[in-house]
Nucleic acid binder design. Sequence first.
DNA 1: ATCCCTGCAAACGCTTTGCACATGA
DNA 2: TCATGTGCAAAGCGTTTGCAGGGAT
Lengths: 148, 148
Amino acid sequence: MALKNTKIDKVIDVFTKFLNHHNHRKTPERFSILSEIYSTDGHFDIDSLYEKMNKKNYRVSRATLYNTIELLLESGLVRKHQFGDSFSQYERSYFNNQHDHIIITDTGEVKEFCDPRIQSIKKDIEEIFDVNIEDHSLYLYATSRKKK
Amino acid sequence: MALKNTKIDKVIDVFTKFLNHHNHRKTPERFSILSEIYSTDGHFDIDSLYEKMNKKNYRVSRATLYNTIELLLESGLVRKHQFGDSFSQYERSYFNNQHDHIIITDTGEVKEFCDPRIQSIKKDIEEIFDVNIEDHSLYLYATSRKKK
DNA sequence: ATCCCTGCAAACGCTTTGCACATGA
DNA sequence: TCATGTGCAAAGCGTTTGCAGGGAT
């Protein structure tokens, strides 16, 4: 599901400011990639994004995709996941609540959930270990109880 | 730190039964690898295990290491981790309490912790999503608060 | 005597890199 | 103008695979 125009504009604005602040050029490729990512929901990998963009309006190289994703990660507009496959998956993270994932191992399906106890664990661990927790990743690996 | 002899024997026994049960051969390589893994604490990767074994008593190929690690994962004697590097890390899991990891991102150091709230989250998620949770992985990415 | 397991090296697949050309500032 | 970004193809690198010889059963 795509975002409303006003929301897309907000994301473009965030990215523009990030590029300015880091003296990175505002190339058409970078904005095309950002728009493409924010035009759909869910998880994606570099290869499917590459296919999708080259079949459609915009032709980009894999190198540029990897470079731009790096910038999007730094700017906090995209999150990276390693669900256990050999490749990385990503998802947009602006206007998208922090959540964790349940991987249904027999189908590969990925569900999302949110649990406040994670936050309290993080807070406690920060005190106990005297560290600042910047981020976390939690994956639950499960099988469905449904009868076939 | 190595385990007591009686404990190593127990692990060998578990592996032997696993191999028998699955009609896999009890080769010297498999037991050497198991012993090597259980002779030290902490995390390791395939390459360092390869180096370590070839410098010492036993010469094994990478192929056999990968094969055997697979069996050890299946038998529950070893756990696999992806701390965010490009390679997998492993740790022995018998006589070793379930725990989660804090990765200190500036040093690469890995600390362990245990929090009962994880178990309750898993229990609740099982009910809410109607699934059986077989396993989980939780990594907290942190920076140290200590002054340099 | 089987046929599974091992070792070696080549293949794989995702990601990174080098380099020449293009382009934003 | 000119340093940075892009595209292409090659290189990297952990892991997997194919195959011939060896060893467990």
